[in-house]
């Protein structure tokens, strides 16, 4: 049993990491915790569901969803957050705005899709595997491998491309990046697109893994991914992976050994403990406040 919990935890944890990266990317650039990210994730899964309902092949649904959800991320920034930056509003205003946006998306999904849980095909189930007597399912393996690949791609984008370099520059010092001719607004737009796109993929994967889609699906996953991002040190990509794995494993083990009802509490307990002991996360550096 132990190994089943572990493999389940690792697979789900990687998906959390994928969502967590969305928090990290936006936080890195805007120093903002994007509360709407969980709802964006749910939106991504619902777009795929819509295309399945229209009898398109699932990969078309996923591709369209990556695009649309990325655009949704951009729209959130353009219509809700960018005006606040322009007005130089207090940070609390952006925070409340993303809470409001999350709530709008989640409830619009309820209106258009209904609030009930809808079944979703497990499009990557190829039956059970048996690797050296360890019972791992092909879904777990697929979820793990795809998430890992996507995380690598995201890391490569940030570390090795021109736009990634610009993202790092904006993260380090927005003003200086702007003075060096970097189009800061475009970098922010791109970041939101990347966050939305990765949330869409995570949404489709998790919907397939649990074979369920519902409008509030992003609420708990969002919180858990946030816990993962904090745990690893928000703004640090590989930190999100470690954080995701820890959250995934601990909730899987908690549900196995303590009881399924408290599965969801595991992430919060971790979150609260890490925030009390080391708010900058495992790999985060302590910032020096300039006075």
């Amino acid at each position: 049993m132990f190994f089943q919990y572990v493999f389940n935890g690792i697979a789900v944890g990687m998906a959390y990491a994928l969502v967590a990266v969305g928090y990290s990317l936006v936080f890195g650039i805007l120093r903002l915790i994007n509360f709407s990210h969980g709802a964006v994730y749910a939106f991504g899964a619902h777009v795929v569901l819509l295309f399945i309902g229209l009898r398109y092949p699932i990969w078309i649904g996923i591709l369209v969803s990556i695009f649309l959800t990325g655009i949704l991320g951009v729209l959130i920034d353009k219509f809700a957050l960018a005006p606040l930056r322009k007005k130089k509003s207090l940070p609390i205003a952006s925070l409340i705005t993303t809470i409001g946006v999350s709530y709008i998306i989640q409830n619009l999904l309820m209106i258009f899709f209904g609030s009930e849980r809808k079944s979703f095909p497990n499009f990557f189930d190829m039956g059970g595997l048996n690797l050296a007597n360890v019972p791992v399912t092909s879904s777990q393996l697929f979820l793990f491998v795809i998430s890992l690949l996507l995380l690598l791609v995201l890391t490569l984008i940030v570390k090795k491309t021109r736009i990634g370099l610009a993202m790092q520059a904006v993260e380090q010092n927005t003003k200086a990046a702007h003075l060096m001719g970097i189009n800061v607004n475009f970098v922010i737009t791109f970041t939101f697109f990347l966050g939305g796109a990765s949330a869409a993929i995570a949404g489709a994967l998790m919907a397939g893994y649990y074979q369920l889609v519902y409008p509030t699906m992003g609420f708990l996953v969002g919180l858990k991914a946030f816990a993962a991002a904090i745990l690893g040190g928000i703004g640090i990509l590989y930190g999100s992976v470690v954080g995701g794995l820890v959250v995934g494993l601990s909730e899987s083990l908690a549900s196995g050994y303590i009881g399924g009802t408290y599965r969801d509490a595991a992430a919060f307990v971790i979150l609260i403990i890490i925030l009390i002991i080391k708010p900058t996360g495992l790999f985060g550096k302590k910032g020096i406040s300039k006075v």
């Binding site: 903002l32 915790i33 509360f35 940070p91 609390i92 925070l95 809470i99 708990l220 919180l223 946030f226 816990a227 904090i230 009802t261 408290y262 969801d264 509490a265 992430a267 919060f268 307990v269 979150l271 609260i272 925030l275 009390i276 708010p279």
Partner: peptide, 28 residues
Amino acid sequence: LPSLRLSGSYLSIVTLGFAEIVRMILAN
């Protein structure tokens, strides 16, 4: 007590998590 040492958004998340834990306890 523990969470108010944190700044803005972290605090909000902790309060949200706390509310969920309370609800889980009430339900279980």
